[in-house]
Amino acid sequence: MHSFKADLTVIDGSRVLSTNGPNGPGKVLKENTIIASRDMVAADACAVESFTWYGRKYHPRQVKHIREAHRRKLGRMDIENLFIKTITI
């Protein structure tokens, strides 16, 4: 299958729907965070790691599509091995 890789992935984490996604209604966390990466899988994985889901922490490998994307080499989910720069504005 033809895959399309984004040059830059930006995830808006200013408000995070922590439960009952994707449609809600659910618990909304105000995180005021923006995640940006050249690696789209890493960006998604970072979003999983950065916030709490249903009140607890999860690892990206627990999310099926992220695991699958990593296996197909669309990007990396092992963000602990990546350099993540955090800027506070």
Binding site: R15, S18, T19, N20, G21, G24, P25, G26, K27, V28, K30, W53, Y54, G55, R56, Y58, H59, R61, Q62, V63, K64
Partner: peptide, 24 residues
């Protein structure tokens, strides 16, 4: 305005929907 929505979430005992048990 849906920001103010507060729900007393009933967290599931096993994994939350969309997540799988961490095998590693």
């Amino acid at each position: 305005k849906t920001d103010g929505y507060v729900e007393t979430p009933s967290f599931p005992t096993n994994e939350a929907p969309g997540f799988e048990t961490d095998e590693i």
